[in-house]
């Protein structure tokens, strides 16, 4: 009897003939059966997700370039630009911070069990929308600064879609589309 059959059984890697031999051995061999049960119980612990949350980092397909790879001339240019920026920053007074305004996001998804929104204003973390009764609409009101926002909806944790009510769109890094709301919201 091959001991590895226990792991192959757990991982669903046995052929049909091996399954027949495996089940026969489980019936006939007590210690083998106990080992199977031990490892199956262990597998339940092992396959439990180690964390409840899973981060959703923002991704960029653009090649990143290390500053360490810059040549001396490029470093000089970087320092020059930084110096000019510093002078300008000192001479300019900081812009007055504008107050947040409420943005209402509504989407029609009657067949969904869960609808979320992810955008620049959530750091691309997903935030759940609330179902609006039995209407099939989902909605959320967020208090956001009156600047340009980019976002998309996530349906049942798997499928993403842009906001069909917003004309502004852009291709995202994954071949899909994000919606764009201009500063101050939609007219």
């Amino acid at each position: 009897m091959k001991e590895e059959w226990i792991s192959q059984f757990i991982d669903d890697e046995l052929t049909l003939d091996e399954k027949i031999a495996f089940v026969g051995t489980v019936h006939e061999d007590g210690p083998f059966r106990e080992e199977c049960l031990d490892l199956l119980r262990q597998e339940k612990r092992l396959r439990e997700p180690p964390s409840r949350d899973v981060p959703m980092p923002a991704l960029s397909p653009r090649p990143r370039r290390s500053l360490l790879s810059f040549r001396p001339l490029q470093w000089a240019l970087v320092l020059l630009v930084a110096g000019v920026a510093l002078v300008l920053a000192r001479n300019l007074s900081p812009p007055a911070k504008e107050a947040n305004v409420p943005y209402r996001f509504v989407v029609y998804q009657p067949g969904a069990d869960r609808v979320e929104i992810a955008g620049t204003f959530t750091g691309w973390d997903r935030v759940s929308l609330k179902r609006s009764g039995n209407s099939g609409y989902w909605e959320i009101v967020l208090s956001l600064p009156p600047v340009e926002h980019r976002y998309s909806y996530v349906i049942d944790g798997e499928r993403t879609m842009s906001d069909p009510t917003v004309p502004g769109r852009e291709r995202d890094d994954f071949g899909g589309e994000n919606s764009i709301i201009p500063p101050g919201g939609m007219a």
């Binding site: 899973v54 981060p55 959703m56 991704l59 998309s152 996530v154 944790g157 798997e158 499928r159 993403t160 995202d172 890094d173 994954f174 071949g175 899909g176 589309e177």
Partner: peptide
């Protein structure tokens, strides 16, 4: 997000 977006959501 298209195919890659779904792939990312499904497998991250």
């Amino acid at each position: 997000m298209g195919d890659f977006g779904s792939f990312y959501l499904r497998h991250r």
